[in-house]
Design a protein around this nucleic acid. Sequence first.
DNA 1: CGAGTTTGACCCGCGC
DNA 2: GCGCGGGTCAAACTCG
Length: 259
Amino acid sequence: MVATLDLNLSLFCPTDDTPVNEVTFKHDDDYDNDEDHSFEKEADDHSVGELSRISKENMELKETLSVAWDMYNSLNAHVKKLMQDKEVLELGTKKRKFDETVQQSSWKRLDDELPRSGTKIVYVPIDPSDKSLVVKDGYQWRKYGQKVTRDNPSPRAYYKCAFAPTCPVKKKVQRSMEDDGVVVVTYDGEHNHRSTMQEVTYALAQESEVSNTSERMFNPPKLDEVLVEQMATYLSKDPNFTSELAAAISSKILEVETF
DNA sequence: CGAGTTTGACCCGCGC
DNA sequence: GCGCGGGTCAAACTCG
């Protein structure tokens, strides 16, 4: 079900199963020709050298990916915190404004504006020049409508959760009237499945659970491989990430070549 | 060609 | 009952 991207990151790494020094060229002819021997040896040396070069390159790519992953996690945590702060701030502002103008009346109207159970409002900072109204939140969404509402000149987009056909969650995305660089996302309902990001976390948790068992003693850790594969699966779905990663890697390569 | 997006039409609830 | 506005549907369209 979940698509995987094989980056071949461990393909050329020498492992217990395929030691580099076992790489040989089989030949049907006898090995009594000295020239053939030297040619074979040369080819052998060349392929070993090539393997170690690719292996080294592979390690560098792993490191780059690892750094990118760490940066992504810290940025993600930072954005979450900022969004929570903003949410609290905006709700507080709404209450204050309401308090100033309608001091005598009850809070009923404001309560109607506040999220009901199962409804969640999130303010997401975006590029003001970006008209696409696309908000990446780890779930897959299918747009089913767009409408210009009376109180806001920017269109409101309607999305249904497309990850699972039975998932009842819908979301509305509309640019904030006050701030052009912020979109208001209204989530309706609860997901009955995990997000793509949660799938990765779950897989890693499963892996770490296995690592606690004695079975681990007999099965050398492959967390790195799983991590890379899961990260590749998740991150390869983000075109921005892949293009930026490609740019970062190519600049790194150019940097190495200039030495 | 299939999956996703766009967009006009339609439905429905609400206030007058 | 009527009109308005938000939400949804579905055919047409786009894109990979």
